[in-house]
Amino acid sequence: SEEEIREAFRVFDKDGNGYISAADLRHVMTNLGEKLTDEEVDEMIREADIDGDGQVNYEDFVQMMTA
């Protein structure tokens, strides 16, 4: 549901600035027990970053979650 997606976005957007940065993503993945290299984190950001601004905004996140 849209509310679940919004809630998930809030979990990833640690600093609440409306964007998921590589640092935000790394933090959440580490908490989930996933040890990722910087390259892996950057690749995840690139794949999710639809508009190419280097971070994942809510619209990018929705597209990723509903793809």
Rank of each mutant, 00 (worst) to 15 (best):
S1E: 07
S1I: 07
S1V: 11
E2N: 06
E2D: 08
E2S: 12
E2W: 15
E3T: 10
E3Q: 11
E4S: 11
I5H: 02
E7V: 05
E7G: 07
A8C: 06
A8H: 06
F9H: 00
F9I: 02
F9V: 02
R10N: 04
V11L: 11
V11M: 11
V11N: 07
V11A: 13
V11C: 08
V11E: 11
F12P: 00
F12G: 00
F12I: 04
D13A: 02
K14H: 13
D15T: 09
D15L: 12
D15A: 09
D15P: 03
D15C: 08
G16N: 09
G16M: 07
G16Q: 07
G16E: 04
G16T: 03
G16Y: 04
N17G: 05
G18T: 02
G18K: 02
Y19Q: 06
I20E: 01
I20C: 04
S21M: 07
S21G: 04
S21C: 08
A22H: 07
A22T: 13
A23H: 13
A23Q: 11
A23F: 05
D24K: 03
D24T: 06
D24F: 03
R26C: 06
R26L: 11
R26F: 09
H27S: 07
H27Q: 13
H27L: 12
H27P: 03
H27C: 10
V28A: 10
M29N: 02
M29F: 07
T30Q: 13
T30G: 09
T30V: 11
T30N: 14
T30D: 07
N31E: 09
N31F: 13
L32N: 02
G33Q: 08
G33M: 14
E34H: 15
E34Q: 15
E34M: 15
E34D: 14
K35S: 11
K35F: 12
L36G: 02
T37P: 03
T37C: 05
D38H: 12
E39H: 12
E39K: 12
E39S: 07
E40F: 07
E40R: 10
E40P: 02
E40W: 11
E40N: 04
V41G: 01
V41I: 14
D42R: 05
E43W: 13
E43S: 14
E43N: 15
E43D: 10
E43M: 15
M44H: 02
M44S: 02
I45H: 02
R46N: 09
E47G: 15
E47T: 15
E47Y: 13
E47I: 15
E47F: 15
E47P: 03
A48V: 12
A48N: 06
I50M: 09
I50C: 07
D51Y: 12
D51A: 10
G52V: 11
G52T: 12
G52E: 13
D53E: 12
D53H: 09
D53N: 14
D53F: 10
G54D: 06
G54Y: 05
G54T: 04
Q55F: 14
Q55Y: 14
Q55D: 04
V56T: 02
N57H: 09
N57M: 11
Y58V: 14
D60R: 15
D60M: 15
D60Y: 15
D60T: 15
D60V: 15
F61Q: 00
F61G: 00
V62F: 06
V62N: 01
Q63L: 11
Q63V: 09
Q63P: 03
M64L: 11
M64H: 07
M64V: 07
M64Y: 08
M64F: 08
M64S: 03
T66R: 09
A67I: 08
A67E: 06
